[in-house]
């Protein structure tokens, strides 16, 4: 028996790689529609083209909706418009910081024309999520998951992950 709104159910599914965030917090959940026949259609978008968590997300969303009584669930994956870290909600940013992961800065729409090279480390300030010190350095732009970079705080010396802007 159907008990809850499917949009609310899909929204609270945790991200497999950043489980402190829900799919809604992360901005990968694009839409949830129910047709008159009760069929639920969920649209999600991957963070990166090769995001290995996508399959798990799809199965988790479908599983939770079926458990809630929705017999027919279709989870669609769309690539356009491309996901941006700007879609991470304020709540999501707060939860990331709370769990020791520096949230991304806002980047806005990509300007027209060729993408400029950035040969020097970006000047944006990423504060240490542990001690709040703004003096941190990038150790590697590619971290343990596709969407994170690895940084270190120059004050408390702790390494931490940063959801890099894309």
């Amino acid at each position: 028996m159907v008990t809850r709104n499917p949009a609310a159910i899909a929204a609270e599914v945790p991200d497999p790689e950043l489980p402190m965030l829900t799919l809604a917090d992360l901005g990968v959940l694009r839409s949830v529609d129910v047709d008159p026949g009760g069929r639920v259609r969920v649209t999600i978008t991957p963070t990166y083209s090769g995001c290995p968590a996508l399959e798990v997300m799809r199965d988790d969303v479908a599983g939770r909706l079926r458990d809630a009584g929705y017999a027919e669930v279709e989870v669609r994956t769309v690539f356009s418009p491309a996901w941006s870290t700007d879609w991470i909600s304020d709540e999501g940013r707060r939860k990331l910081a709370e769990h020791g992961i520096a949230p991304p800065g806002h980047i806005g729409p990509r300007p027209a024309g060729p993408v400029p090279l950035t040969l020097d480390a970006p000047s944006s300030v990423v504060c240490c999520p542990r001690c709040g010190c703004p003096a941190t350095s990038e150790l590697s732009r590619f971290g343990a998951t596709a969407c994170t970079a690895l940084r270190r705080c120059t004050a408390c010396l702790e390494p931490f992950e940063h959801v890099k802007e894309i």
Binding site: P46, S49, V78, S80, P81, A82, W83, R110, V115
Partner: peptide, 9 residues
């Protein structure tokens, strides 16, 4: 769509 994501990557 592939290009839109790919440019960023």
């Amino acid at each position: 769509a592939v290009a839109g994501k790919g440019v960023k990557e």
